[in-house]
Amino acid sequence: MDLLISIIITLFFLLLAFTTGTLIEKAHFNKLKKMEIALIKKPVVTYGTKHYPITRKIKKIELVHGESVIAGDYFKYYVASLKNIFGGRLTTLESIMDRARRQAIVRMKEQAKDANLIVNVRIESAMLNHVDMKNSIPKCAVFAYGTAITYE
């Protein structure tokens, strides 16, 4: 009887987390898509190039950055821990990393809205919580930064 109750409780929490997690993720992906489309033309972003042909007079050079911390939900971690036994792609966690990176890049671009280009963008990530063994839930923290150049 106790076992049955605990299974039911776990299933309930999994279902709850699955519903909220999926809804939040869908909304976030839609929002990201809109923001990325709005920022697709300007500024131009280069990820590896350090030398971009600059022909016009430069008004301002500054460091721009964006950051985001995204948490997954209970369902995602549960599925990931099950999949961890057999190995392979942990698709549920991949989507979290993807969201965090894209959000950080969008924030950086928004900060440099008036700039013409952002050169040499770097993306840096950290797990905020991975040392705590009892509660080893990865909260994916991502930084994106680059040099914004504005023409006169």
Binding site: L16, H28, S68, V69, D73
Partner: peptide, 10 residues
């Protein structure tokens, strides 16, 4: 972290 989403405080 249970329901998912962005952690604004962090």
């Amino acid at each position: 972290n249970f329901i998912g989403g962005e952690l604004g405080s962090y």
